[in-house]
Simulated scan of single mutants.
Amino acid sequence: MSAPTAPNPTAAGSGRNATERFAQKQRSAAEVDHARVSAIATDALSALHEVIREHQVTYDEYDALKAWLIRVGEDGEWPLFLDVWIEHVVEEVANASREGTTGSIEGPYYIPGSPEFRSEATLPMREDEKGTPFLFQGTVTDLEGEPIEDARVELWHADADGYYSQFAPGIPEWNLRGTIRTGPDGRFAFHTVRPAPYQIPTDGSCGALIAAAGWHPWRPAHLHLKVSAPGKQLITTQLYFEGGSHVEDDVAQAVKPELILRPTPAASGTGEEVTYDFALDPA
């Protein structure tokens, strides 16, 4: 395990990290469908032209936009901007025909290759990790309800201060990240801590947009998951907490009724627990 990163986090530093991670999974330009790119780009530009006409955008506003776009690139915040304000619609289109578990956005903070366990595990965490102990458990099945053995359930989430390992300094590499392989009964169980609501970075260009528009920067507390199995469609989703702050006005607009958790006091007497099952569509 690598050492924790250096202190003093900044939005620009976190943004550049997310940009570098994203660049690693970019497709080759040889795969581009030029006709499709032309159609999408033409419609997007036409829609922007209509916005300019409707709102009678001035040259001062146009120059402010150019300066802001340049700053987004300098801050490395394009992944943050796109994942907060655009991805939820892409996800909606991509999963429109899914019959099983409801999907949600991936966000900019996914890292593949987290430590792997079998059936039940405690996520890697610091000895003094803050937060309410939380048991997240369930079963992975097919659409007929048959359990799936050896399904991969990847879980990652922010800590009680709203920071993600590998994207904020001073946090161990795999903190609050892990993967469980299900047993013959399809079950999994993660012991972790309940995450807190957090603000998206506001000291960079995305924060400048939020301040200028008078918006809020908050995301509700949530768990990130990817669940997959041979012959099944991978599902990427996020799960939220009933009654939590900003569930009703998530800045990323990613909350759906099917994704709300209702934890109860843990049977162990310590913390909380919840059961949430996943049904995977055929590939």
Rank of each mutant, 00 (worst) to 15 (best):
S2A: 08
A3F: 01
P4N: 10
A6E: 12
P9I: 07
R21I: 03
Q24C: 00
K25C: 02
Q26D: 04
R27V: 05
S28Q: 13
A29V: 10
E31T: 15
E31Y: 11
V32G: 05
A35G: 12
R36G: 02
V37G: 02
V37L: 15
V37D: 13
A39W: 05
T42S: 15
T42D: 14
L48W: 09
H49N: 12
H49T: 13
E50M: 11
R53F: 02
R53A: 12
E54W: 03
Q56T: 08
V57P: 01
T58Y: 00
Y59R: 06
E61T: 04
Y62V: 04
Y62Q: 07
D63K: 06
A67N: 07
L69E: 10
G73I: 01
G73V: 01
E77I: 03
F81T: 09
L82R: 09
V84Y: 04
E92G: 09
E92Q: 14
E92P: 07
N95V: 12
A96C: 11
G100F: 07
G107F: 02
P108L: 00
Y109V: 01
I111N: 04
G113S: 01
G113D: 01
P115Y: 01
P115D: 05
A121V: 04
T122G: 05
L123Y: 03
M125W: 01
E127D: 14
T132W: 04
T132A: 08
F134G: 08
L135M: 12
F136H: 09
G138C: 12
T141Y: 10
D142E: 10
G145K: 15
E146D: 15
P147E: 14
I148T: 15
E149A: 15
A151T: 12
D159E: 13
D159I: 10
A160H: 14
Y164I: 02
Y164F: 13
F167L: 02
F167E: 00
P169V: 08
P169M: 05
I171Q: 07
E173T: 13
W174K: 01
N175L: 00
L176M: 05
R177C: 00
R177Y: 00
G178F: 03
R181F: 00
T182Q: 01
G183D: 12
F188V: 03
A189V: 07
F190C: 08
H191V: 05
T192Q: 09
Y198S: 14
Y198E: 11
Q199N: 15
T202A: 07
A213T: 08
G214C: 01
W215K: 06
A221R: 09
H224L: 00
V227Q: 01
G231Y: 09
G231P: 03
L234T: 13
T237K: 02
T237Q: 02
L239T: 08
S245I: 04
A252L: 07
Q253N: 14
Q253P: 02
A254S: 15
P257M: 12
P263K: 05
A266R: 11
A267G: 11
E272H: 07
D277Y: 07
F278Q: 07
L280V: 13
